[in-house]
C-alpha cells in the first residue's frame, strides 16, 4: 500500500493542478496578511475560504483523479498487489497531496508573519486541522462515488451533489427546521445537527475558537460548554474520524466487488 501511496502522491504532487491549488491558498493568505495586520481576522477570512474550498476541491480532485488514473489502476490490478492496497493507497495519496497543498499554501504565509509567536497559533492549527480533515473526508467520499460509477458524468454529478448537500442544502434544511420549531428550546437539536455534518462541525469548532460564540448567546454557551469539554471535543474529533473512515471502508468494500 505504501508504494501505491508513494506513486499516487508523487504523481499528484507534480501535477499542475496541485500547484494551482496551493498557489491560490498562498496568494490569498499572503494577500490577506499584507492587507490586514490583524492575524485573527486573516484566520477568519481563511476559514471562510478553507471551509468552502477544501470540500469542493477535494470532491472534484477525487473524481477526476479516479477517472484519469484508470489506466494506471488497471496496470496495477494485473500485478500481484492487493486490491484494497491499490485503492486505499491511491486515496491516501490524493488526500495527502491535497492536504500538503493546503498546509504549504496557507501555512507558509502565516509562518512568514510569525503566527506561532502570536495568540492565534492555536486557532491557526485548528484551521489547518479542519482543512486537512475535510480534504480527507471529501476525497474519500468522491473517490468512493467514482469507484461505484463507471460513467464519468454520472460519477462527477453525484459527487458534486453530495458536496452540495453537505455544504449548502443541509444548512438550508437546518435553518428551515430551526425557524419552524423556534418556539421550542433548540440549542441541543441544533448542536446535534451541526455536529453531524463535517463542514458545519468544522465551522462551529472554528467559530468557537475565534470567540464568536458571544454572538450566539445561549446557543453559543451550549456549544461552548459541549465543545469546550473533553468529552465534547472527543466526540467532535470522533465524528470527523467516522466521516473519514466510513467512505474509506466503502472504498475498500466496493473495490473488492468491482470488475475492471
Amino acid at each position: 500500500m505504501f508504494k501505491i501511496f508513494k506513486y499516487s502522491f508523487f504523481d499528484l504532487i507534480r501535477s499542475r493542478w496541485t500547484y494551482i491549488y496551493a498557489g491560490f491558498y498562498f496568494l490569498f493568505t499572503l494577500g490577506m496578511l499584507m492587507l490586514s495586520s490583524d492575524l485573527s481576522k486573516v484566520v477568519i477570512s481563511s476559514m471562510n475560504v478553507v471551509l468552502i474550498l477544501c470540500p469542493l476541491i477535494a470532491t472534484m480532485f477525487g473524481v477526476m483523479y479516479y477517472y484519469n488514473s484508470r489506466e494506471f489502476t488497471e496496470l496495477l490490478l494485473s500485478q500481484p498487489i492487493k486490491r484494497t492496497s491499490i485503492f486505499t493507497g491511491q486515496f491516501l495519496g490524493l488526500a495527502t497531496s491535497l492536504s500538503v497543498s493546503l498546509l504549504v499554501g496557507a501555512g507558509i504565509p502565516f509562518l512568514m508573519f510569525g503566527v506561532f509567536g502570536s495568540d492565534q497559533a492555536g486557532n491557526f492549527l485548528v484551521l489547518l486541522f479542519n482543512g486537512v480533515v475535510l480534504s480527507f473526508i471529501f476525497a474519500a467520499i468522491s473517490f468512493f462515488i467514482a469507484l461505484k460509477n463507471e460513467d464519468k458524468i454520472k460519477g462527477f454529478g453525484l459527487a458534486i451533489l453530495v458536496w452540495l448537500l453537505l455544504a449548502v442544502v443541509y444548512d438550508g434544511l437546518l435553518l428551515l427546521g430551526l425557524s419552524w420549531f423556534r418556539d421550542y428550546p433548540l440549542e441541543k437539536a441544533s448542536l446535534i445537527a451541526s455536529v453531524l455534518n463535517p463542514i458545519d462541525l468544522s465551522r462551529v469548532m472554528l467559530l468557537l475558537k475565534l470567540d464568536i460564540s458571544a454572538l450566539m448567546s445561549l446557543t453559543g454557551a451550549v456549544y461552548r460548554k459541549f465543545l469546550g469539554s473533553g468529552v465534547g471535543m472527543a466526540i467532535s474529533v470522533a465524528v470527523l474520524l467516522i466521516w473519514t473512515i466510513i467512505p474509506t471502508l466503502g472504498i475498500r468494500r466496493v473495490c473488492l466487488r468491482r470488475d475492471f
Partner: peptide
C-alpha cells in the same frame, strides 16, 4: 492476490499513465 506472482499478463490495449 499472491497467486498473480505466477502470472505474466499482457493486457489487450496497452493503457498506461
Amino acid at each position: 492476490w499472491e497467486y498473480r506472482r505466477q502470472i505474466s499478463y499482457l493486457p489487450q490495449i496497452a493503457r498506461f499513465p
